[in-house]
Computed example of a mutant assay.
Amino acid sequence: MLAAKTLPLSSPVTKVSNFPDSSLIFPKSIPAIKANRNILSNPFQASCLKTSLESVVAPDTQSYPGATRVKILSEALPFIQKFRGKTIVVKYGGAAMKSEALQASVIADLVLLSCVGMRIVFVHGGGPEINQWLGKLGIKPNFLNGLRVTDASTMEIVSMVLVGKVNKHLVSLINKAGATAVGLSGIDGHLLTARPSPNSEQLGFVGDIASVDPSVLRPLIDNYHIPVIASVAADKRGQSYNINADTAAGELAAALGAEKLLLLTDVAGILEDRNDPGSLVKQIDIKGVKKMTDDGKIAGGMIPKVNCCVRSLAQGVKTASIIDGRLQHSLLLEILTDEGAGTMITG
């Protein structure tokens, strides 16, 4: 599924050739993987881990010698120990959804993280796919302040594309990669209850989230299945609404008491200087985010993403990261290395 490359678990700016010389000190034993008997004593989970490791680490055996590949895996151990058994909510969209290579990278990352014991919840949108189908039906997409204006006919297409097409395609890819995915929307099991947006007169059936009931998710994530959730919800009368996927992911992360919320985006993260991609802010707290916003350094489309992260942190999520979905294996870089692949926001 992936291109024949071996994954270096390093930062996107670290040269691969220098990685084996890392001075990081790691434990000499491997208690974490053995300790989680529910994962590796289960034949399916063992097979799942084997499949995902093969797809990520060993497709091209000529690229790196065996000792280097083993060292890379061993250096991931402390991070696996740290996040094993924790819930991680990932919002998927943007370039990572449009590129087949990046899509394969994201799927492989999800499967690997699930197979080493992380409870993954995968939330997706699908704007480009919706636009494509609206075009086929002769409906011109219309946006207001970055939000899709959603009349009744557009809402019907949104539901068909997100729930019926994109969601099931992602489920199929995850299952094929060796994990077990279950496709849902916010409507299923009263997972998300919607309410009209304050600008509903202009936006139509674009909704906010009134409440979250994660009951339907808990048995899935406790058994290391991967819920794949389309960002469509309904109000108490059954009217469907188009929900911003970042917002859906943030509210789900809060309701599940997630360790991490990860938003895949088409930028490097929060930049000190919006015109300088090299000015990435690696880590920042809520106070720092507020100051950068007041100073105009966080603006435009980054504001709702940052607000989503801040809201989830205020409700108990440990960390929220805005990461560069244009990088292959950005999820692994963010979770299994110190360098990360974007900006991590803390409370």
Rank of each mutant, 00 (worst) to 15 (best):
residue 283 Q to R: 13
residue 289 V to W: 12
residue 237 R to E: 13
residue 194 A to G: 10
residue 230 A to C: 03
residue 228 V to G: 13
residue 234 A to Y: 00
residue 215 S to V: 03
residue 173 L to I: 10
residue 172 S to G: 09
residue 271 L to E: 01
residue 294 D to G: 02
residue 259 E to C: 05
residue 283 Q to H: 04
residue 204 G to D: 09
residue 202 Q to A: 15
residue 189 G to H: 08
residue 268 A to R: 13
residue 175 N to C: 11
residue 201 E to Y: 12
residue 239 Q to G: 02
residue 191 L to A: 00
residue 221 I to C: 02
residue 186 G to C: 04
residue 281 V to P: 14
residue 271 L to P: 02
residue 183 G to A: 11
residue 240 S to G: 07
residue 259 E to S: 13
residue 297 K to E: 00
residue 223 N to S: 15
residue 275 N to E: 06
residue 270 I to C: 00
residue 233 A to N: 09
residue 193 T to K: 14
residue 226 I to T: 05
residue 279 S to R: 12
residue 247 T to L: 14
residue 190 H to E: 01
residue 215 S to R: 03
residue 297 K to G: 01
residue 192 L to H: 01
residue 258 A to E: 13
residue 232 V to Q: 06
residue 195 R to Y: 03
residue 244 N to A: 03
residue 269 G to C: 13
residue 271 L to F: 03
residue 173 L to P: 07
residue 280 L to F: 01
residue 185 S to N: 06
residue 247 T to K: 13
residue 246 D to F: 00
residue 274 R to Q: 15
residue 274 R to L: 13
residue 187 I to L: 05
residue 213 D to R: 01
residue 283 Q to C: 02
residue 262 L to D: 14
residue 227 P to A: 07
residue 173 L to V: 09
residue 229 I to W: 00
residue 193 T to R: 11
residue 272 E to C: 04
residue 247 T to D: 14
residue 200 S to G: 12
residue 227 P to I: 06
residue 265 T to C: 02
residue 188 D to V: 00
residue 206 V to M: 07
residue 292 M to E: 00
residue 197 S to W: 04
residue 258 A to I: 13
residue 224 Y to W: 06
residue 197 S to T: 00
residue 292 M to N: 06
residue 243 I to T: 07
residue 174 I to C: 08
residue 198 P to D: 08
residue 174 I to Y: 08
residue 218 R to F: 15
residue 194 A to H: 09
residue 200 S to Y: 06
residue 191 L to Y: 00
residue 300 G to H: 06
residue 288 G to Q: 10
residue 286 I to W: 07
residue 253 A to G: 06
residue 274 R to E: 12
residue 260 K to F: 01
residue 216 V to I: 13
residue 298 I to N: 12
residue 223 N to F: 08
residue 244 N to T: 02
residue 243 I to M: 07
residue 199 N to C: 03
residue 208 D to Y: 14
residue 185 S to Q: 05
residue 266 D to V: 09
residue 232 V to W: 11
residue 190 H to M: 01
residue 262 L to Y: 12
residue 297 K to F: 02
residue 223 N to G: 11
residue 304 P to I: 11
residue 233 A to R: 06
residue 211 S to T: 14
residue 184 L to M: 14
residue 209 I to S: 08
residue 283 Q to F: 00
residue 232 V to P: 15
